[in-house]
Amino acid sequence: MTPMIAVADLWKVFGARADRIVGTPLAELSPAELRGRTGCVAAVRDVSFDVRPGEVFVVMGLSGSGKSTLVRCLTRLIEPTSGEISIGGESVRAMGPKRLRELRRRQVAMVFQHFGLLPHRQVLDNVAYGLEIQGVPRAERHRRASETLALVGLEGQERQFPDQLSGGMQQRVGLARALATDPEVLLFDEPFSALDPLIRRDMQDEVRRLHAEVGKTLVFITHDLAEALTLGDRIAVLRDGELVQVGTPEELVGAPADSYVADFVRDVPRSDVLTLRWIMRDPAPGELCETEPLSHRTVIRDAVHRVLRADRPIPVVDGHEQLGVIDADQLLPALISHHRQVPA
């Protein structure tokens, strides 16, 4: 399957003469040294990843890790210093201004942390903005904008101005604006970090629901690990502009690539993320097991009830093949401990 987005060897260096750094020994310097020597800051360093069609790809990192820069490089809102980006198989960096605008108008839409709504336009016209600049006639674009507003649950708010809405509703408008042009890819730049926790959870649910309904490819930037774990099919962890690890939530929690990632995931309740695969043991020879097996994809938490009730270890299977067994001795530490466990 061709990836929806493919990024290869992407660099973004800020500062004077930024283009003279990539490909020289300077590129190997630590951020502090680089800054000292050249005054430049490498916000994105040699990043490569693929995003599959229909996937929710989360880029996670602390503030200053370069994640916002990275996502802006994808549609060249920030011009990359070097590297390759392709969307839908077409090289973005080779696009002329016109083709680039087409890409932004029809293929890729973005949702922003601070919403970026136009305060002088009503909600309806905000949502219709993308269509308007494509030259869609007024009636048509208003019809489509209304539909999209209904999709995000904002029926009846068309005539409001953005500042008359709550933060959560404003971000729904932002979301609707991005969806209105029916793009293939949606980019989310920390869309919910300005919202309070309850609303944030609502909005995450909303994104999950929409993803299920419309099936777009999503690239989602966040500094919130819980959000990343909830939404992401795969998560990329960024640190000082470099990609530290790309993997499923499970892989991140179960097998952090280094101490940085491990630190990150330390407080994650393991039983919520890890599957039985990560804690099962080999059956002892001649050991008697329960007859009803558990799939190796079962999350630990969901297995608690059965394992603790069972008298004997329960076999863990992948289809018909038995991978191992699990009993309370394996389960309990996983439930209480937050310590690092690496699968055998």
Binding site: R72, L77, E102, R105, M110, F115, L118, R121, Y129, G130
Partner: peptide, 24 residues
């Protein structure tokens, strides 16, 4: 942020000026 949002929606410089910057 508003300018960026408008750009990322694919506004031409002229559209950015007339539909976003001048009204705001």
């Amino acid at each position: 942020t508003v300018v960026e949002a408008a750009l990322s929606a694919g506004s031409t410089p002229r559209q950015l000026l007339w539909k976003v910057q001048l009204p705001m």
